[in-house]
Computed example of a mutant assay.
Amino acid sequence: MSISTIAKKLSTAVIAATAIVLGIGTVAEATVLTFDDIAPISGYDRIPNGYGGFNWDNFGYLNGSDTALSLTGYDNGSVSGDYVSFNEYGDPALVSDGIFDFNSAYLTAAWNDGLSVTVEGFKSGATLYSKTVVVDTKQPTLVNFDYFGVDELRFTSFGGVEPDYLRSKGGPGTQFTLDNFTFNEKVTSVPEPTLLPAILSIATVSAGSVLKRKQLKQS
């Protein structure tokens, strides 16, 4: 094996060891929020902050199987169990936390077919992602977002037309339902800053010692 090959392998080993020490790229298994494990209610209520580890702004939840909601997207949008979340009054709604990956969710229009839903992903106030999807009232749409390393999501809905079969239910609206919110929360374990130089120094010295021995054997 050539000296350059050995050096490359040692460099890779040092980088890998450093990544392990820093906890770079490590994530927990995906979590799915179904909104069925919040306290049962009649009517609707706001999602409490802390559910799933997130802060929820302008997100409510309700039992879509209520007979008063039959045929609407509240009923048709449930994927697991009977409960779904929705944006209150059709206004923008936010989900925020520490750093996380937003994988996917099911979206359904509550009242208007052809409803547009824009989902933006932010980190420290900067927009990293934006996607707009068009959904209907009859069935949920699985949307794979794959928003990596965000700390806030903003959901904004607009447009669409109320179908004839819902006209007796109370009028059009830009609410959407959200179900099976799937995410990965980033897990980092970073050693004390004063320890990092020592760890990297030890790794570098160790790699240099091995390379030197290889050189002596080949001389």
Rank of each mutant, 00 (worst) to 15 (best):
S2A: 11
K8Q: 13
K9N: 03
L10E: 09
L10K: 15
L10D: 00
A13V: 05
I15P: 03
A16S: 13
A16H: 07
A19D: 07
I20D: 02
L22T: 02
G23I: 09
T26R: 09
T26I: 09
E29A: 14
V32S: 14
F35T: 05
D37A: 08
D37W: 06
I38P: 03
I38L: 15
P40D: 14
I41D: 00
S42H: 08
G43Y: 11
P48G: 00
Y51T: 08
G52L: 02
F54G: 02
N55A: 13
N55K: 15
N55D: 05
W56S: 09
N58C: 01
Y61P: 00
L62T: 09
L62K: 09
D66S: 07
A68F: 02
L69S: 04
S70Y: 08
L71N: 08
G73M: 05
Y74L: 10
G77Q: 04
S78M: 02
V79D: 01
Y83L: 00
S85D: 05
S85L: 06
N87M: 05
D91A: 15
A93W: 09
L94Q: 11
G98E: 12
G98P: 08
G98N: 10
I99G: 01
F102T: 06
F102E: 05
S104H: 06
Y106E: 12
L107T: 06
T108N: 12
A109C: 04
W111D: 01
N112M: 05
D113T: 12
L115A: 02
V119H: 04
F122L: 07
S124C: 03
T127Q: 14
L128F: 13
S130R: 15
T132P: 15
T137S: 01
Q139G: 01
Q139W: 11
P140L: 06
L142V: 04
L142A: 02
Y147V: 06
F148P: 01
E152Q: 15
L153I: 07
F155P: 02
T156Y: 11
S157V: 05
G159M: 08
G159S: 02
G160I: 05
E162L: 14
R167D: 02
R167L: 13
G173D: 04
G173S: 07
Q175T: 06
T177N: 08
T182N: 10
T182I: 12
N184C: 07
N184F: 11
E185C: 00
K186T: 12
T188C: 05
T188Q: 09
S189V: 10
E192L: 15
L196W: 12
P197H: 03
A203M: 15
G208W: 03
V210S: 07
K212L: 07
K214R: 09
L216V: 06
K217D: 14
Q218N: 09
S219I: 01
